[in-house]
Design a protein around this nucleic acid. Structure first.
Lengths: 337, 337
DNA sequence: TTTATTACTGATAGCGCTTTCACAAATGTT
DNA sequence: AACATTTGTGAAAGCGCTATCAGTAATAAA
């Protein structure tokens, strides 16, 4: 409760004076330099406490060439706004960065046209590193990375895998989901895919494929229908599947949003879930738990995504070169399968 | 497509040399000082372009005492993570700040115990201002504000109204919703309230009350049951309402999450919506449009909240003192009323 | 004891910008 | 024609730190 005085304008020089040492020594103490006599460390710390001193970031940046800032860039063209995803991930980033004395600079900007503005921000000594979110065009990121800016992308980069990235293990998650359906007794597992142009879409489909292949079977093309991750496309895909007449008793849907759409079609046509058709989604989005039937789905560790990205960038800032990471998923069994 | 060279280490001094003027003049041009001869302005701009120069934020901060940074503080104890709210609002903030050459610094931190750390970040010359999200204890903010830090809170501050804030007009929105229900022919409009300890909860209830009062009636206490904004509490509240036996033909629910819960109870008991009971929610959360019956609700302008907060803080940074703002809501008619 | 290390510490020189301040040139005023 | 203003510019002094470098005191090695 005893708020420290926290004077706005105390400078290192004043601390030096009060503590009776040179500015250099104060700086050493502040930065944890070992070889300072114990009694001086103490008197410096005391002065810091008493005057409520906290060093100026600007001055420090200017002197060191480090800003302590990490750009967190979201392509505002992207519609990540269907879920708490972005909030959770940025919060995790911010929290994790704090441990390395870094801070997150938020940048929402259309990635294509902003090239220049963004480049200006990133290229000069404005930030120590940058975290990008899955993007259509990662050529820009590759460029920056090559120029020496520490970068990590959340999601799987399209072109240059040389950029460190962190992603959810989409393929394994999808495979687990499909295998679960099979284990539950499904004979014909259909799938509604996401946008196959996006890595998450492709990989989830490949996971489905792998599960079928493990059975020694080939994928029946009639059982796969393409969606684009939208709720609407889930509805359409399920209608198409049903109308085609192919028999199926389970469906793996590439994300919850489409799964919810698919479920509403199933409900309308009075097809019992999971008795007649079992369904499992992917993402464990918030709304998955809202309906009268809660969705069985593959949960991705969103918070983990953020903190992994943050700690990777922190490593890079310190000069190391972290390996890309793949986060495990978890099958959440609920009402629909 | 032609990426500018964008050299990492061009300094103002080099620009001065290339342009054949003094550093002071370069600085003037960069900052739009009027009284520089036209031909010099041009040669400076040319040099800037050719060398791909962009000024160092740190140096500028050190010289001016301004950082160009706005802290965006989210109390990580809070569960804002049920909706895209946070993502939308921060994106809007970031985008709006850019217009004033400011940037958003993200800080997710438990507000109570972090006092010290946060205070350290905010108090010294680390940021030019701060945006806070609705918080239980705004005493901390009041403190900072009194100390001269430009602050804006998103939501309605509990204690000190002297802090500039921006909020959705909860009362009017709730009143509109209730009146709509009445206009539609409802004779007995019930309400499920939110947490009345939170301003949004209280104000939405007051809006309901006002609509009833406008009819010249008093609120029938049997028609109001308290929830706490959670899905679960919506379910419970509706069960209570139904079990109590009080007749009602419409219900205004203080948020969509509870409304969705209430709806599922109505469905289970085969009560037709909106024929037997009309329902309208509040928030227009994403999931409101997902079910088979899309929720009629009061939309709040989340993006507006973010950009208002951002432009208010920008004004304050420039020394002005903006008035608090109240954002209008909009009734979105869908399937449930 | 003399010399070579080691342990601490303080001057001091920037980091890259802004901003007085002073001054010259150009313009305006009696 | 003499003086007072206004304009446009550069020199130079910081802004608050860090980091190099050199120097003194204390310790180890010869």
């Amino acid at each position: 409760m005893t708020q420290p005085p926290m004077n706005q304008n105390v400078t290192l020089a004043e601390i030096a004076e009060v503590a009776g040492v040179s500015p250099a020594t104060v700086s050493r103490v502040l930065n944890g330099d070992e070889r300072v006599a114990e009694h001086r460390v103490e008197s410096v710390n005391r002065a810091v406490r008493e005057l409520g001193y906290s060093p100026s970031r600007a001055a420090r940046s200017l002197a060191t060439g480090k800003t302590g800032l990490i750009a967190t860039i979201i392509d505002s063209n992207l519609e990540v706004f269907t879920d708490p995803f972005w909030g959770i991930v940025t919060t995790a980033i911010s929290r994790t960065l704090q441990k390395s004395n870094l801070q997150a600079l938020l940048m929402a900007t259309p990635l294509n046209k902003a090239d220049n503005m963004l480049a200006a921000s990133l290229n000069s000594q404005q930030v120590d590193g940058a975290i990008f979110f899955q993007l259509h065009d990662d050529g820009f990121v590759a460029e920056l990375f090559k120029q020496g800016l520490p970068c990590v992308v959340v999601g799987t980069p399209k072109s240059s895998k040389s950029i460190p990235y962190v992603d959810v293990d989409n393929a394994t998650g999808a495979r687990m989901a499909t295998e679960y359906l099979i284990t539950r007794g499904a004979k014909n597992v259909a799938t509604i895919t996401g946008d196959l142009a996006i890595s998450a879409g492709r990989l989830r489909y490949e996971g489905y494929e792998a599960a079928i292949a493990a059975l020694g079977q080939a994928v029946d093309k009639n059982l796969v229908v393409n969606g684009n991750f939208s709720h609407e496309s889930g509805i359409e895909a399920m209608e198409e599947l049903l109308d085609s007449g192919v028999p199926f008793d389970a469906v793996f849907v590439a994300n919850d949003l489409m799964a919810l759409g698919a479920m509403s079609v199933l409900n309308e046509r009075d097809i019992k879930v999971p008795e007649q058709v079992a369904v499992v989604g992917f993402d464990d989005m918030f709304a998955a738990q809202l309906g009268r039937q809660k969705l069985t789905t593959v949960r991705q560790d969103i918070e983990g995504l953020g903190s992994a990205a943050a700690s990777m960038i922190a490593e890079m800032v310190e000069g190391r070169r972290p390996a890309s990471r793949m986060l495990q998923t978890e099958l959440i069994q609920r009402d629909t399968a």
